[in-house]
């Protein structure tokens, strides 16, 4: 049972890692704590949901669509709104993203009602059984995607020109500007990419979790926790943080009480911030 719980936790943690990586990227580059982050997960999930329900497209195949949709949404949000407050005191961007959260979550509520929805694929019941352990294929595939996405984001930031521009801007906006980087565009790209990868997480989530318009805030909170565990702004840390949190939650749910697992999340978050603000890796940004 212990091993089963750990495996379930790792598989869950992979998903956490993906959208938390998006959160971490946005914080690392712009210092924006994106409270609307979970709503981007929700939008990604609903993109896949509708493509599946209306177009019979498998959620794994709809990943590119939700990535693209969310990229556009993210790019637009940054370009139109957040770029205007990025230089202002940080509170402005927090509140601004909270406003965006209200808009997205409640628009979704208006459009799609408060119903809980889920996708039932042909393979959703099938799983791998070995040595008494049960591993659903969908979750395994999801986990694989998750690792690929986080790794891909890391390589993207380190190996491509736009990735380097993003990192340069994160380090020193003025310097990057002098070197010909258009900060506004780079910021919008960053938010777009962060949103796109989060949209992918949403698609993955839609393949085996219930989704509903108000689901966002709790995902945002998980992202806080994951990112603080792994180190704010440090992308590979999101993977580590995601896996740790996934396992911890799974263990709490198995051995104690499912209700306690979110209380535990906050407790960990609180303790981490106080004792290890730079995360377990020690590589997080601490002002």
């Amino acid at each position: 049972m212990l091993i089963q719980a750990i495996i379930t936790g790792l598989l869950l943690g992979g998903i956490y890692a993906v959208y938390s990586a998006g959160f971490s990227l946005i914080f690392g580059v712009m210092g924006v704590v994106n409270i609307a982050h979970g709503d981007l997960v929700m939008l990604g999930a609903f993109t896949s949901y509708w493509l599946f329900t209306l177009g019979h497209i498998d959620p794994f195949l709809s990943i590119p669509f939700s990535a693209l949709t969310l990229f556009i949404v993210g790019y637009g949000i940054q370009r139109l709104i957040i770029n205007r407050v990025v230089e202002a005191p940080p509170i402005m961007s927090y509140i601004c993203t909270f406003g965006i959260h209200l808009i997205i979550a409640n628009l979704a509520l208006r459009l799609w009602t408060a119903d809980y929805r889920s996708i039932t694929t042909s393979y959703c019941g099938s799983h791998l059984e070995c040595a008494g352990l049960v591993i659903p294929y969908a979750r395994l595939a999801t986990f694989g995607m998750a690792v690929v996405m986080v790794g891909g984001l890391y390589l993207f930031l380190n190996r491509t020109d736009i990735g380097r521009a993003i990192r340069a801007t994160a380090q020193d906006r003025e310097m990057a500007r002098l070197m010909g980087v258009r900060a506004n565009h780079v910021y919008a790209m960053t938010f777009g990419i962060g949103a796109a990868i989060t949209g992918v997480a949403g698609s993955l989530i839609s393949s085996y979790f219930v989704i509903y318009p108000q689901m966002g805030l709790s995902y945002t909170v998980t992202a806080f926790c994951v990112v603080v565990l792994g180190g704010m702004g440090y992308i590979p840390g999101a993977l580590l943080g995601g896996l740790i949190l996934g396992v911890l939650e799974s263990l709490t749910a198995t051995y104690w009480n499912a209700g306690m697992s979110s209380a535990l999340t906050f407790f960990i978050l609180f303790l981490m911030l106080i004792f290890m603000p730079a995360g377990i890796t020690g590589k997080g940004i601490v002002e």
């Binding site: 914080f27 210092g31 704590v33 940080p90 927090y94 909170v221 806080f224 926790c225 603080v228 704010m232 979110s262 209380a263 906050f266 407790f267 978050l269 609180f270 911030l273 106080i274 603000p277 601490v286 002002e287």
Partner: peptide
């Protein structure tokens, strides 16, 4: 704690 860290910690406290 400073900046975003204080904000997130207090938020975590309230939710906890």
């Amino acid at each position: 704690l400073r900046g975003a860290y204080f904000a997130i910690a207090t938020f975590a406290f309230a939710e906890a």
